[in-house]
Design a protein around this nucleic acid. Structure first.
Lengths: 206, 206
DNA sequence: GCAATTATTGACACCTTGTCAATAGTGCGT
DNA sequence: ACGCACTATTGACAAGGTGTCAATAATTGC
């Protein structure tokens, strides 16, 4: 094998270069663990000097945070244009769209819920918290309880807890295959409704 | 500050030394992230040469795996000696004991469910899988459905998914304080029963 | 063309990891 | 008590990763 003739140095708009590097990072972090990916790897695949990665993102951790942030975004489309019928139907539609998104982005989704809390890392926690808040808003909107005021904090906490089940259930479906997509649909829809309609009232006033 | 006069080299039984190092590692990994803890740190706190840590555990990763393994053990006491009454009461007792354990070992529990980080690590996954299987057995025993054969895999998968909610809910309780212990008790008990008695039958035959 | 701007790089200092031959506690046989 | 074998323990090394900074070279405006 001949020596790789290095292409002439090409100068790009900072935004474009940044996006390019971020894309490579997303792919690598998506398929390998944090420690297994080195900045050198990312720089090499992006056809760029290692120092440039540090230049744009500061440290390896900061770059990783950017990637996680991107992966955790819950598409707004999931809870858009829901028919004004009852909560059951709206949640059902919502869950279905959600499963659609997950199925389409299988790999990215799996690697996104894996890092769920790079232990004791306050910045990762922060990102997860923000993502959870957004997801919670979507669910509350779907079950038409967005304007509950009494016990609002408890209700939100319960929905966040439910998203823990959602993640675990998705793993059961995508990785183990122990549950089918329609199983998940039934399970997630029913448990959400059970939570907000039955468990929440029982807990609201303590 | 004077130079630390280094204590004379002390020779110990391999098992004892191994346990000592493992203890230090458990404490450090419990309070800091994987990358933030170096083998040097562990060796220093254990009053030992860095190479000795490698000697006993091979690599840093293997040591980390040991720590995670220890942290994930679900105490058998949680599902021992349950009264032969109905499922509701048995689950209630089980959940209560569980919350007791979690409350007592707050820090360890939190760091135990955090480190399911290090994404895409098959060995970590393996450990989590095994721990989940054991926990699932306990729950099935409590709800008196240990001998279900039809749809057994789906039932187990649903319980594993529920344990995802359990972890998230525990965080809501211990970290955010958005839910009280009795809230958790009500929520976890009811959702488990709802899962096995209502959702499972609806999903069993597909 | 030429100079100014700045995206990009190479090299440096420091830290971490895993390995191996060398060192030195410890207990056993006499 | 003494020496000796056993092996727990160590120091040092090589490889590789990280963050920083002055130097380099594309590009742009005049």
């Amino acid at each position: 094998m001949g020596v790789q003739r290095q292409a002439p140095r090409r100068r790009m708009e900072p935004d474009a270069r940044r996006a390019e590097i971020l894309g490579v990072a997303r792919r690598l972090f998506g398929t390998n663990s944090y420690t297994a990916v080195s900045i050198s790897d990312i720089a090499a695949e992006a056809g760029v000097a290692r120092a440039l990665v540090n230049h744009y993102f500061g440290s390896k951790r900061q770059l990783y945070l950017e990637v996680v942030r991107q992966m955790m975004v819950v598409p707004a489309s999931v809870s858009e244009r829901l028919p004004p019928t009852n909560a059951e139907e709206r949640v059902s539609i919502c869950v279905d769209r959600w499963l659609e998104v997950v199925e389409r982005n299988r790999d990215m989704w799996l690697s996104a819920i894996g890092p769920e809390a790079l232990s004791n890392d306050p910045e990762i926690d922060q990102i997860m918290l923000e993502a959870d808040e957004i997801a919670t808003d979507r669910v509350l909107e779907a079950v038409m309880m967005a304007d509950v005021v009494e016990g609002r904090q408890k209700l939100r906490a319960m929905i966040r807890a439910h998203s823990g089940m959602l993640k675990a259930a998705s793993r059961e479906w995508l990785v183990r295959g122990a549950l089918s997509r329609s199983d998940l649909h039934v399970m997630l829809t029913r448990t959400v409704l059970h939570l907000v309609h039955t468990v929440f009232p029982a807990v609201r006033d303590d």
